[in-house]
Design a protein around this nucleic acid. Structure first.
Lengths: 160, 160, 160, 160
DNA sequence: TTTT
DNA sequence: TTTT
């Protein structure tokens, strides 16, 4: 469909170290658990309240998988952009389960480190559109931030 | 926590008419089912492919509940902004279920009609800047984090 | 610098047909004039007021230049994403002038038609990734993606 | 007009301390100068290049003016959201000038501090410590719709 | 004028 | 379940 936008933008902190794994076709994927938090004052009690929301993030964009692996750790603060995708799966008991995730498709999305970790600098962004994966599309997905080739070293790709 | 952002922006179409219901404390809530869609060409097969994503939207913002009720119908195209929230619930069998929704909290979020449906025009949300300055606008831009009034009725604040 | 975001998102209408021109290095550029509009009720007078804001948009992203040329016309409604850039120039009298524009760099940004103009259909999405095509950088923004396509030659350029 | 969006989102650093001033009607206004920066590798020369963009930000939202005054300083990193507005003015020579600014209208926009300045002072040590120190929190900055303090009840109405 |  |  045209005229469609599916965009999620988060600023939050990693609740644990990134989990990096490989698919059988040789692609690396990163999973992040990101916390965002809302604070507000209860209208009745006047109490200050806070709610933390946890977001499952799945990264297929190779450049950003590298960034995760090299620079992000539990506690890192990031800005990221992706799209919403709900996935159905079946648990051991055979029950249908649904999981909604923030997905950074190949060649798309955005990931920026917001705290100056000594162990590394945030690289630029990558833009990697793999044929095999990306329900991607423009809308929404386009990768903001793009670029940096494919098959380059991170060194080449990282900004600065 | 501060220093946090949790934002979803969608442009899509309603898969069915809005569902409006009331809570026991007298607030109206609207539920929308919004489709966004990605289209791409398979890099290997060259085939054109498409994936539709369905988004559950829950609206607590009274003004936008009104907009839903009055102007939106199955098929309407909208721009909307909200935040991600995952809710846990238990089904009849006692299984834990999680549902991730795009939420427009009271006084927050954005909802704009993008097609000029004959049955109505989208109204706006309010804009309260001082008269002297604000190119402000409502919909479309509406404000995240912003708000409406201050003890005013929605009527006064709503554009239109 | 990393940890930076420069993003503009507009939904508005073209005030005139797109202007397409070529640079001496053979690249085509499109210029758009986009109107967004704020409506609000004056708090003191209670009057309904409206302010239209005009945005100068400059498109270096080749795909979107094509989209402009083929599908957009005066009055078209679009969603677009780019970054802010301020350019200095000198008028005939030798005065310094500054112009702030919304820029869609090569391989970046987003442009989606929101009204189904008869002269063109918006089609699928594009995925521009090719290593050679990345001057990209991250925060920049460019979103990738978009597209249109569907039976026209644009389609060939898309996705690959 | 409806169906319109005029949104700017920036993550950047203040080039100088916020400038706070009052209008004759007793409202306080803050002006910020925010730098964002793009880094990329020149495709031909292979050189790393960088371009810094400066953004003029004008804040009418009282809550955020307070945040600026209390917590922001030259060098502070912020996330902010506003809308584009171009203003015409005349210089001493009588020449027409235009200035495009990112405006946070009253009751609108967003401003969040992204570096945990303990008391809005710059300086501090360069120790970023371990990840666990980053649960963020800098108290103070209104994050994401969070409140509109300043002694009105808006504070109470917000949240969920 | 910031920042890395 | 929408839309093109």
């Amino acid at each position: 469909m045209s005229g469609s936008l599916n965009r999620v933008m988060l600023i939050g902190n990693l609740g644990r170290d990134p989990e990096i794994r490989s698919t059988q076709d040789g692609n690396k994927i990163a999973n992040l658990s990101i916390a965002t938090s809302d604070t507000w004052k209860d209208r009745n009690s006047g109490e200050r309240r806070e709610r933390t929301e946890w977001h499952r993030v799945v990264i297929f964009n190779e450049h950003f998988v590298d960034v995760c692996e090299k620079f992000l750790r539990k506690g890192s603060k990031v800005y990221l952009e992706g799209q919403l995708a709900t996935r159905k799966w079946t648990d051991q008991q055979g029950n249908d389960k649904y999981s909604t995730e923030v997905v950074l498709q190949k060649y798309r999305g955005e990931l920026t480190m917001l705290d100056g970790r000594s162990e590394g600098q945030q690289g630029g962004s990558g833009d990697y559109g793999g044929p095999e994966r990306h329900s991607g599309n423009h809308q929404g997905s386009g990768s903001f931030g793009a670029s940096f080739g494919q098959g380059n070293d991170l060194d080449d790709e990282i900004g600065f």
